[in-house]
Design a protein around this nucleic acid. Structure first.
Lengths: 196, 196
DNA sequence: ATTATTTTTGAATAAAAGTTCAATATTTTT
DNA sequence: AAAAATATTGAACTTTTATTCAAAAATAAT
């Protein structure tokens, strides 16, 4: 079999991330992606079924890597619930720190991809949140966390908050520090706004 | 001058909200809106410049009403910072409780409208967040709120969290109670997750 | 009742963009 | 070196949908 030099599939994905971040999924033309990836329009369709398929693969790659990281940590370490929640927030942020464009695509096109297939999309990040929920439960049992609030709400709350913060950061072009934001979030999650 | 019976402009906006919520802005055709509003395709263009203009007006109406409510309260009452923040969360949620479809459009199409004009879009809700920031500052001064966290981060954090929760609720078709979520949010904002 | 004005219509138009595929180029095999 | 296999191409095709506008309908004015 013929050996492929380079990796057009990857080039196309990366070009797509850049385009989607800059112009949004719907305003990105296949030819935009092709030009940036240095391939012909037709090649895009050799590597991906259609435009939707590209977006889908971007999300899949993202969540696979986030989940893998946190899953390893959960298995191989023995962190307290408090430390584990902090680590999860760290890893999630870090994934986006590595690639701001993915952060923008993540926030902007999430509804789009959820519309394609709710079930498929949920599966992508549910595993991650499941781990979070597991450790929140442990924290409540051990009386480290408050008994008062609904665990499902927290789950969604924290996810939404982070999603929005990342969006804000990614669009600000580094004018705000994501590391600082990350610390603020961890503090706020732990302590709320009331002085103690 | 001829007297108009009914209100086609309003019919069109309401039909658009329903369509955008169900299928998303980009997947909604003008004819979908026209059929639901019981008007001809051409009429849509009599009342609105183009498709974008409809989305724009939806957001404008929404934020105008939210801001008006909270602005009146801020002027005419003398609530403590803590109570005021709670009231702002209440009013924001209530706007969406009144119309779940607006909640879905709000969350899904926000990036879309921000792309049209960042400046215009920001103006829509900045006034609301400004009031929030004002009361957070007061709370910090009065030592009711913690001195530790960044006020800007809080501002964005809370906004994003609420945005996401509303989305979740709107899409769940009432399977979760928004009133319950609202209370959870207020508690979480106040106290964080650590037991005290 | 007739004319003028305003509102509504929807078929026709135009523009845009996703997708295909026969032809070409490149690499591997014999 | 020729043939076979695979990869790449981009112009042409197709589909989709936003927008227009001349005509018709409805209402108001004379």
């Amino acid at each position: 079999m013929r050996h492929k030099e380079g990796n057009k599939g990857k080039d196309i994905i990366e070009a797509a991330i850049t385009c989607f971040a800059k112009k949004g999924y719907h305003h990105t033309k296949i030819i935009d992606i092709a030009v940036l990836a240095n391939v012909a329009v037709g090649s895009v369709y050799v590597y991906y079924k259609d435009k939707e398929d590209i977006l889908l693969k971007i999300f899949k790659n993202l969540w696979d890597s986030i989940y893998f990281k946190i899953s390893e940590l959960s298995k191989n370490s023995n962190l307290s619930p408090e430390k584990m929640i902090a680590a999860m927030i760290d890893d999630l942020f870090d994934a986006f720190i590595e690639n701001p464009n993915i952060a923008i695509v993540f926030v902007n096109e999430q509804p789009q991809i959820a519309k394609i297939s709710r079930t498929f999309y949920n599966k992508l990040y549910e595993r991650y949140l499941d781990i979070g929920e597991e450790f929140i439960k442990k924290g409540i049992e051990k009386k480290i966390f408050s008994q008062e609030f609904n665990i499902k709400t927290f789950r969604i709350f924290i996810f939404g908050a982070i999603r929005h913060l990342i969006h804000h950061w990614a669009e600000s072009n580094g004018k705000v520090s994501l590391s600082k934001i990350k610390e603020d979030v961890k503090y706020l999650v732990k302590n709320g706004i009331l002085v103690r």
